[in-house]
């Protein structure tokens, strides 16, 4: 590990000023569960670490018409929040399987997103929930749809003088729910071979899909929004056939690699399996909730 400078920023403007000064040499520190490990193992060189845990705006968690999650809010606060449990269950699914209990006490969803791992568990969940990312920089605030946030492994839409402030998620419709799951060979302490999330809105009689959003992890350089698989379900009956059709469409957009965590063929197969399970999981939640 190399020596680096460290500043605990007290305000967004202080953090942005530091980023503007140090640009590529600077890195935002929140939970640190990725960053500190990367620096310790010499996978990343950092000249200036800007700790934002003391910045008020990145620590908010509120639900008023929409859900707002500050970029530094740790996983455990998310999965133990009652409003999130009722309305955004896919977020609970995802945040409760990121690392172990100690990691969940520190790791933030904002950090998981900014680390931009193709296998990040929270990102498909954020995609299916239609999340907007609020970003702050020298020119003020801007908003980016979460499916457009990641550019590649470790690469994001953030400029080097910008930081993520919060995630804004709209309230789901009445007959809607969401589900995220991943496949790992081990039951814990593992990274998704494939992840899949589905948010579904059904008709009042639960017989027809009103809309659906499907997202995939670990099958491309970034987490994917499965646009075609999602839109083809709208207006279709809730049936095994409709679901299979969506699963096949999801498999079509997967471009996985073969590595020590799984082969491309295994991952493509798993996209079908997990998409089906995610859709059925969300549908069952709607039925159970009514």
């Amino acid at each position: 590990m190399q020596a680096f400078d460290y500043v605990a920023a007290k305000s967004l403007s202080e953090a942005v000023n530091l980023l503007t000064k140090y640009r590529d040499q600077a890195r935002i520190l929140s939970g640190g569960t990725d960053l500190i490990v990367q620096v310790r193992e010499n996978h990343r060189q950092v000249g200036m670490m800007v700790d934002i845990k003391g910045v008020p705006e990145v620590n908010t968690l509120s639900y008023n018409g929409s859900l707002e999650i500050g970029a530094s809010v740790p996983c455990y606060k998310i999965y133990s929040n009652e409003a999130i449990k009722s309305n955004f269950p896919a977020l609970v699914d995802a945040t409760s399987i990121i690392g172990g209990v100690q990691i969940q006490s520190r790791a933030s969803v904002g950090g998981n997103l900014c680390n931009a791992s193709p296998a990040a568990d929270s990102i498909p969940a954020l995609i299916i929930l239609g999340t907007q990312c609020v970003v702050n920089g020298p020119d003020g605030e801007r908003s980016v749809a979460v499916e457009d946030f990641c550019d590649g492994p470790g690469q994001t839409a953030l400029e080097s003088n910008e930081l993520l402030v919060k995630l804004v998620i709209p309230t789901p419709a009445p007959n809607a729910s969401s589900f995220y799951l991943r496949f790992t060979p081990r039951n814990e302490m593992d990274i998704a071979v494939v992840g899949a999330g589905a948010a579904v809105e059904l008709s009042a009689d639960h017989q027809t899909f009103v809309s659906a959003r499907i997202a995939l992890g670990a099958v491309a350089p970034t987490p994917l929004f499965a646009d075609d698989a999602s839109s083809l379900l709208a207006g279709k009956p809730v049936s095994d056939e409709s679901i299979e059709e969506a699963c096949e469409a999801a498999k079509d957009i997967a471009t996985p690699i073969s590595d020590m965590r799984g082969t491309a063929a295994q991952r493509t197969h798993l996209v079908g399996v997990l998409t089906r399970r995610a859709l059925n999981g969300a549908i069952n939640r709607i039925k159970e909730g009514s």
Partner: peptide
């Protein structure tokens, strides 16, 4: 079920960490 040294084409071990070497945990 899970443990092995995984090698690439050049004979390099690619999973030299507890994360990817995958010993069973108490959950397994």
């Amino acid at each position: 079920l899970s443990e092995e040294y995984v090698y690439d084409q050049k004979g390099q071990m690619v999973n030299a960490s507890f994360l990817d070497y995958r010993m069973p945990t108490s959950y397994d």
